[in-house]
């Protein structure tokens, strides 16, 4: 099975072609000056050409579904949906934090992917490294860095940190972790479409039809409009 993975959840755009257990090729462009709308398809076209693959030969598409930048997620998902619809192929959405944890999972370690959620918040979830992949231990969360401390208290396990939110962690938290903290090398620190593609393959093995074409990004944060409306409705009571 040949699967094309896409990730535009952060400022990094990446696309990857995975065949079975093998990575055929991957393109990463970490150039925030250009929008995903400008980057994604040219990068994708280059990868296909370089790999000598026709787009019709791709059997399935996997998209990084979030959390992340709302607009970035939608560009990636809209692109994946377009391909899936045009070629009548399955589409699999992969939580961005799952894919990030997959970049660097070490058995026995606590894996903590961190993405900048703006306004002083981090998107995160905690994973336990196992031999066959990371296993998620918490919900997908948007929280201030301080609240992460509680999750780190338990145990002596090393804590593997990755993602563009590491800088928001703060010195105090890093000092508290001390020797336990391990910041993943830059090459594996950012979201990668290859991880998205591998996890997409696993998901499609379970559910060969993939996700419905109406699938939405994993926003994690509600839009402010929805929050305001809920508050207003709660105040006014049931209609």
């Amino acid at each position: 099975m040949l699967i094309l993975g896409l990730d535009t959840a952060t400022a990094t755009a990446s696309v990857a072609l995975v065949k079975g257990k093998e990575l055929l090729g991957e393109e990463i462009l970490n150039i925030p000056q250009k929008t995903h709308s400008q980057k994604l398809l040219p990068v994708l076209a280059r990868l296909l050409k370089g790999a000598g693959v026709q787009v019709e030969d791709v059997d399935a598409f996997a998209v990084s579904a979030g959390p992340g930048s709302f607009t970035g997620l939608r560009i990636g998902l809209a692109t994946g949906k377009g391909f899936a619809q045009a070629l009548s192929k399955p589409l699999s959405t992969v939580p961005t934090l799952d894919a990030l944890a997959y970049n660097y999972y070490f058995p026995g370690a606590l894996i903590c992917p961190l993405l900048d959620a703006r306004q002083g918040l981090l998107y995160t979830a905690l994973y336990r490294g196992e031999r066959n992949g990371p296993r998620r231990q918490t919900d997908y969360m948007a929280l201030p860095p301080e609240e992460l401390a509680d999750f780190f208290l338990v145990g002596e396990k090393p804590v593997i940190l990755l993602g563009d939110g590491i800088e928001l962690l703060g010195k105090a938290l890093l000092a508290q972790l001390g020797e336990r903290a391990f910041i993943v090398p830059a090459a594996s620190r950012l979201p990668r479409a290859s991880s998205v593609a591998f996890l997409g393959l696993e998901a499609l093995a379970e559910n060969p039809l993939g996700d419905p074409i109406t699938v939405e990004p994993l926003y994690v944060r509600k839009s402010a409009a929805e929050i305001n409306l809920e508050k207003r409705r709660a105040r006014e009571g049931p209609p």
């Binding site: 019709e56 939608r74 692109t79």
Partner: peptide, 19 residues
């Protein structure tokens, strides 16, 4: 609206590319 435009644009580009 930029965010709204980008959805249609991304879908259209992928459809046109694939077909």
């Amino acid at each position: 609206l930029v965010g709204a435009l980008l959805v249609g644009l991304a879908v259209a580009k992928a459809l046109a590319f694939a077909r």
